[in-house]
């Protein structure tokens, strides 16, 4: 069982001894927060100024169009870092909402504190680069999947890569994340449950 507290994650990512990790955590201002179900980590129109480590819970990333239709872009669970790079980097208001789908515990670090910490601890700069690169790979992969894989293939891939999605996220959000209609998703689910018997 993997630990999802910030100490274990940093230790795994940075491969440094526990006492060094503890000194990072002590030196960087951070705030533990609890988001109730439906609370927002970030709301469209506001600026994203922080990154948050998810200790437990689920965060839904979505954009809303003029008809108030939600378009789901991502779902993150415990062990992940949440932020909205676009708003953070360009310092512009967010077009993205980040909302808790259940009670979610996070540790939040303000970007300005992080930038000070980069000077003190070059290893954190590395972590930041790696996380950015991982986001790049993810978005590149998703765009390619949408173009080249069928809805069924995308479903199968998602089931394999992130089974938590199917346990903890409502069907209509999953359909949106897969880029398909909710009816198509229930059809695909039926096909899969038959073929796996």
């Amino acid at each position: 069982m993997q630990q999802h507290d910030i100490q274990s994650i940093l230790q795994r990512e940075l491969q440094l001894p526990p006492n060094e990790i503890s000194s990072f955590i002590a030196a960087i201002p951070h705030q533990a927060k609890t988001l109730a179900k439906h609370d927002f980590f970030l709301q469209a129109g506001k600026h994203c100024t922080s990154v948050a480590f998810i200790v437990s819970g689920t965060l839904l990333y979505y954009r809303e169009n003029d008809n108030a239709d939600k378009q789901v872009c991502d779902v993150l669970f415990e062990g992940a870092w949440a932020t909205y790079i676009h708003s953070l980097v360009t310092k512009t208001p967010s077009d993205m909402n980040i909302q808790a789908l259940e009670e979610t515990h996070i540790v939040e670090i303000q970007q300005q504190d992080l930038e000070i910490a980069f000077e003190q601890f070059p290893q954190l700069e590395r972590l930041s680069r790696r996380l950015t690169e991982a986001s790049f790979i993810q978005i590149a992969q998703r765009a390619a999947d949408l173009q080249f894989l069928s809805a069924e293939e995308r479903y199968a891939k998602m089931m394999k890569e992130e089974p938590r999605l199917f346990e903890r996220v409502p069907q209509y959000y999953l359909a949106s994340l897969l880029g398909i209609a909710p009816q198509s998703l229930s059809r695909i689910r039926k096909e899969f449950s038959f073929s796996s018997r």
């Binding site: 700069e125 680069r129 978005i139």
Partner: peptide, 19 residues
């Protein structure tokens, strides 16, 4: 390393914008 992080961020933004 910081420069490469910034370049990486700009690629991310490019792809997101294209999408």
């Amino acid at each position: 390393e910081r420069l490469v992080r910034h370049i990486s961020e700009s690629y991310y933004l490019f792809l997101e914008n294209k999408e």
